[in-house]
């Protein structure tokens, strides 16, 4: 316990001595992980909103009426069962003619002249929610094989494609920036550690003289890097969380966008980001230490001209 306390104290002394450099490293970790975490949140928002679109309906298959055009009675139920069994499909609902008429009435409630139609012309339909929005073309293709039963297939393909590509671009951009800034954070931490070693070179040499093991000397520097990484990651998680809460407060008035990311998402990814920050800190420290605190072997053996060793 005393040993642990000593190591922690030494790490804190290191941090205090190089405050400005430490601040630079913490900021680098903070910016890179904020971007990474922010990209994750935006991606989740896109996913939730795409899924929530049209009440979770990505594809509508309008059906021929049963008992007409050669469609057997019970064919709709059979199709519903079959589509429900497809792996691309998360959920499928049957929308009968009465439901279609109710929806029609709701849609044109403010235009009564449009309501003077025969409700029986409105077709029944099945409404499909996909497990992954990118799979809509596969499902569309499979539905096409049921042309004797399906009148028309409507998808939100264009919108889905746009959102999907936007999500991909955002993800790539976020990931790229996070990688570049993450690497710079690791390098900055490595530099911080090198400066800390340089600033404490007298202490390190005295520690070696009195018999401290190399790991005992290294641990405070590794702890220092880990603390820098953790502080940067903690700030990133807090900033993204606060920014999201504010955005949600503003966004509540915009009905078409859902901000319903569960707290579980933030807790899980928050922990991952913190661990990542700590790992980046440790990696930076190890890189910083590698050059200056190699296992001491008392100097490298020197290749000597044999004549030098001959008796004189």
């Amino acid at each position: 316990m005393n040993r642990l306390g000593f190591l922690a104290r030494e790490a804190l002394i290191n941090l205090r001595r190089n405050l400005l450099v430490v601040l630079g490293a913490v900021l680098a970790v903070f910016i890179s992980l904020s971007l990474a975490f922010g990209a994750l949140v935006v991606n989740e928002l896109l996913r939730i909103n795409t899924l929530a679109w049209q009440d979770g309906t990505h594809i509508i298959a309008f059906l021929y009426d049963e008992g007409q055009d050669g469609v057997a009675a019970g064919a709709h139920a059979a199709l519903l069962d079959e589509v429900g069994g497809w792996e691309e499909v998360a959920n499928v609902r049957y929308f009968d003619k009465a439901a279609a008429w109710a929806e029609y009435q709701e849609m044109f409630a403010d235009r009564p002249e449009q309501l003077n139609i025969d409700p029986s012309v409105l077709p029944a339909s099945i409404r499909i929610e996909l497990t992954d929005i990118d799979l809509y073309q596969d499902v569309q293709f499979r539905l096409a094989s049921q042309s004797q039963l399906i009148r028309r297939v409507a998808t939100f393909g264009e919108q889905i494609e746009q959102l999907s590509s936007l999500s991909t671009v955002l993800n790539l951009l976020g990931l790229g920036l996070a990688l570049v800034l993450g690497a710079s954070a690791v390098i900055l931490i490595a530099n911080t550690i090198r400066m800390a070693i340089y600033a404490r070179r007298d202490e390190v040499s005295i520690m070696k003289l009195v018999g401290a093991s190399n790991w005992f000397i290294r641990v405070p520097f590794i702890l220092e890097g880990m603390i820098e990484g953790l502080i940067g990651a903690g700030l990133a998680v807090a900033t993204v969380w606060v920014a999201f809460r504010n955005l949600r407060t503003i966004g509540d008035s915009i009905e078409i966008i859902s901000f319903g990311i569960p707290n579980r998402f933030f807790v899980t990814w928050g922990i991952v980001i913190l661990l990542f920050g700590a790992a980046a800190g440790v990696l930076g420290s190890v890189l910083g230490l590698s050059r200056y605190l190699r296992d001491e072997d008392g100097g490298r053996p020197v290749v000597v001209d044999r004549r030098v060793l001959e008796p004189t």
């Binding site: 018999g211 093991s213 190399n214 296992d295 001491e296 072997d297 008392g298």
Partner: peptide, 11 residues
Amino acid sequence: PAWKIPFLRRS
């Protein structure tokens, strides 16, 4: 070996 040098220095 290198890892035993600290033990020497303690004595």
